[in-house]
Design a protein around this nucleic acid. Sequence first.
DNA 1: GATGAATGAGATTTCATTCAT
DNA 2: CATGAATGAAATCTCATTCAT
Lengths: 238, 238, 238, 238
Amino acid sequence: MASRSRDPARTREKLLTHATVEFARKGFDGARVDSIALRCKLSKNMLYYYFKSKEGLFVAVLERMYEKLRSQQKDLAVRASDPVSALEQLVQHTFNALLDNPEAIRLMNEENRHKGKHIRQSKRMRDLYNPLVETIRFILERGREDGVFRDGIDPAFVYLSLSSLCYHYLSNQYTLEVALGVDLGSEKARANWLVHITELMMLFCTSGAPAATLPVITAKPTRSPKRVAVKRSARQSA
Amino acid sequence: MASRSRDPARTREKLLTHATVEFARKGFDGARVDSIALRCKLSKNMLYYYFKSKEGLFVAVLERMYEKLRSQQKDLAVRASDPVSALEQLVQHTFNALLDNPEAIRLMNEENRHKGKHIRQSKRMRDLYNPLVETIRFILERGREDGVFRDGIDPAFVYLSLSSLCYHYLSNQYTLEVALGVDLGSEKARANWLVHITELMMLFCTSGAPAATLPVITAKPTRSPKRVAVKRSARQSA
Amino acid sequence: MASRSRDPARTREKLLTHATVEFARKGFDGARVDSIALRCKLSKNMLYYYFKSKEGLFVAVLERMYEKLRSQQKDLAVRASDPVSALEQLVQHTFNALLDNPEAIRLMNEENRHKGKHIRQSKRMRDLYNPLVETIRFILERGREDGVFRDGIDPAFVYLSLSSLCYHYLSNQYTLEVALGVDLGSEKARANWLVHITELMMLFCTSGAPAATLPVITAKPTRSPKRVAVKRSARQSA
Amino acid sequence: MASRSRDPARTREKLLTHATVEFARKGFDGARVDSIALRCKLSKNMLYYYFKSKEGLFVAVLERMYEKLRSQQKDLAVRASDPVSALEQLVQHTFNALLDNPEAIRLMNEENRHKGKHIRQSKRMRDLYNPLVETIRFILERGREDGVFRDGIDPAFVYLSLSSLCYHYLSNQYTLEVALGVDLGSEKARANWLVHITELMMLFCTSGAPAATLPVITAKPTRSPKRVAVKRSARQSA
DNA sequence: GATGAATGAGATTTCATTCAT
DNA sequence: CATGAATGAAATCTCATTCAT
């Protein structure tokens, strides 16, 4: 008897691990509390004991995922390299972090479907991403000083671009494959894509006039989906 | 009472319209058949009468969504313009199509979570996207002839990049806002972003050496999530 | 157009035929109105048009089945033969009629589960079975006159015995096979069984003292399931 | 409120008991899960908790029924008596067991409609019925030694005959009553019938030449419903 | 005489959550 | 800490039946 694990930390961890997979695979609504407990070889009650509810578990899963993901971007380490190399590494680490954590994409998609209601609370998020923005700012600064990057680049734009190019390819792999009739899942295809997006980011930082910047959040912004048009004159010509 | 509608085409359409909203908002598993029927003021069996199952309805919703989305990209019309302008318009239309059809993003995310199992069948998809790729190829060709675009650009890469930059910003708006502490939802922010991504695409097509290409799908590809690394030498320097 | 059958009699008949199969195979509750209509390549409404309800159809099916079954017992024809041969034929025809109409057994079982509520009404039943009892009485009479059958045999007992021995073997074939580990479905097994039950019936009519008789129905009888015991003295010894 | 029972064994048993009644009365398809749960004063999911599905419950009901039925045939006890008396008792106990368990007949009919698909699996069945066949063989053997029973009687035939005569009378009581215009449900009628079938069985075992035997099941037998005919010469004359 | 469209009630099954130990 | 038993609400899907043409 009494051979149950009796190691609260491990139990909690096990729940998180299996819940991550379940939530990623099935979505919040599709995920089954039973299924998670079963895979943990625990009774469902433990889940409620540690996380109070399915939603509580989901939030914990989200936070753990973000922490893991951020840690794999290794952005602090990147500062040591020269700007060009640092940017390259950042793209590379971001892409690989997403590749290594396929659950991350599904979880973020889910959270966006919920309009971010779970993580909006979490102060943790800001703490996790501030350093990243700072690192990008640092790289851009040094690149400008070295004369290799242009001036006036918004770090947020860099991250948004880089994130888009890494994320979408992996997130929408299946529909894109069907639409375009190409293979995106092979190692080779991925390597090519990584080369391509690295080039794109580099082009952006090295050439052209300064891009626009993003307004910092102040009050609750309006989200009217009015059409957006780019007037020719508004574009920054090279 | 209230004489029943007796207009099968309208009934079907009503179901599709409301189902689109429900599936987008709640995901496949979160969507409620009851809720859809209620909003249609129909008894829920009609849903089964027309679409056989919740999944059948989902597939129909997906297909209709893709058709609408593609129609709004207006890529054929774009061919009339000069290459630079055409590319600009393509980016613009794509961004606006996604903005106008917020359900589209959620539905595609859902379908990707299911690894594309629903649309993989549909031959319709290929027919919808072939013209788009052809249009891009056409634009690139003409741009090269005009000396404004560089040679050897893979149309698929163009679409993937463009799609990434339009889609991710909208799809992941909420988590990105929290992470970066910026506002992405305002009209102004969106306009700025559109300027930015248009510039990026333009930079890509006008400068630099030829990018890599994607392997066309032949047999079932392996999807091993092996890490991908970009060796410096592999990059195409400007 | 307008190539629909437009032959009411045929339509009705088609419905009855397929309904017979469906009710026999699935039972009353398991039978599906849709399924019957589909197999008839008719719309469900026809079923309601001709038979008013699922239950109405079931009753019609029951009656048609009894008529067919009785007609195949050919008992009137049997009167021409000598008593022994007539009895033999009766057993044989009864067994074969059930074999030829496997739906009959399932339908009767179903009706007995319903405590006969559908056919109790039908005066038709009495008319169908009276001749049978009369034929048996006739055979027994002649057999006694010929000195081959014993005196005082109740025709109802003869029919009940014969019916039991023909019916149960076929009705409970599957559970009996599992219980006894024998094969009852082969042609050979059936032939052997028919030999056996013919012998049994013959033994009964030719040997021993007169059996007991059954009380004719008068008022609603009590159906208390009190145990029944055969005291030794009550038995008729050989 | 009302403190929940917390006695799993009792809960399971309660479910089985009420399900037996419901399935017997309404058939598998007619039976209502709600109705069973209600009568057990349990929420219906308990049914799924214990038996996984309606069908799982049905199978459990079937097995329990067979066990109860077999236990009431008391065939082992019967071996103590002299052969004639033992046979008498076997008939009597079989008849009374069916009378005492009216659900048994309906459940077996249902199972036969399903072609025995549920119990064919169950190894339990063979174990339950082997002793019965052995008992019959034992009785026949001793009877032959005593010079009271004839030689070469197949125990399976004895059981099939006995079973037919006990079962059909009760199973088809209602349609037979309507057809024959007699009362079969009264205690008196049943007593008379029991006398009759006891006599029949006795006649069979004491007189006449050896009957045919049944082929033991080896491979999947063919079940062609070809007509069966008894040629006169094939019959064993007395 | 025949049909496709529509319905309301209800069927089986599922699921997050809680109780009692 | 941990569990098996229990629940109530609700989800998907089905079905006999009717309406309007």
